[in-house]
C-alpha cells in the first residue's frame, strides 16, 4: 500500500505481537517469545524501549528462577517508565521475600 504515507509509530515492536499471540496459544513457544522481547530491547538501546517490555522479560526470568536478572529488568522498567514504579517495587519485594523465605522453607518440611 502507500508505504510513504504510513505514519511512523512511537516504538519499534519487532515481532512482539506475533510472538505474544503464538505464546498464548502454545506455551511451548516461550523461547520465541523471550527472543522477541530481547530483540525489542536490543533494537531500541534503552531510550525507546516500549512500555512493559523490560517487565515482561523480567517476569519470564523470575518464573525461571533467575531472580537477579529479573530484578535488574524490573528496575530497568521502573527507570524507563516511572509509571510502573509501584508495581515493579511490589515484584522486587516479592523476589526479596522469596529469597529470605527460601532457607526457612528448607528447614521446615511440608507436612501435607
Amino acid at each position: 500500500m502507500l508505504a510513504g504515507c504510513a505514519p511512523k509509530g512511537l516504538y519499534n515492536w519487532g515481532s512482539y505481537s506475533q510472538a505474544t499471540n503464538k505464546y498464548y496459544r502454545d506455551p511451548a513457544q516461550q523461547a520465541a517469545y523471550r527472543e522477541a522481547l530481547q530483540g525489542v530491547i536490543a533494537e531500541e538501546q534503552g531510550q525507546r524501549v516500549p512500555p512493559g517490555i523490560y517487565a515482561e522479560l523480567g517476569y519470564l526470568e523470575m518464573a525461571a528462577g533467575n531472580t537477579a536478572e529479573a530484578k535488574r529488568l524490573f528496575l530497568a522498567e521502573k527507570a524507563r517508565w516511572p509509571e510502573s514504579g509501584p508495581f515493579m517495587d511490589r515484584m522486587i519485594r516479592k523476589i526479596d521475600d522469596g529469597a529470605a523465605a527460601a532457607p526457612s522453607a528448607k528447614t521446615a518440611p511440608a507436612t501435607s
Binding site: L10, N21, P51
Partner: peptide, 30 residues
C-alpha cells in the same frame, strides 16, 4: 481462544496512543 488472542493485541495501540501500558502478559499471570 478469542480472549487471549485479543488481549495480545491491546498493548501496542494503547502505547502508540501515548500511554504507559502495564505489561499485559505479566499482569495476567500475576
Amino acid at each position: 481462544e478469542a480472549a487471549d488472542a485479543f488481549l495480545a493485541t491491546l498493548a501496542v495501540p494503547l502505547a502508540e496512543r501515548g500511554y504507559y501500558v502495564f505489561p499485559t502478559t505479566m499482569v495476567k499471570r500475576v
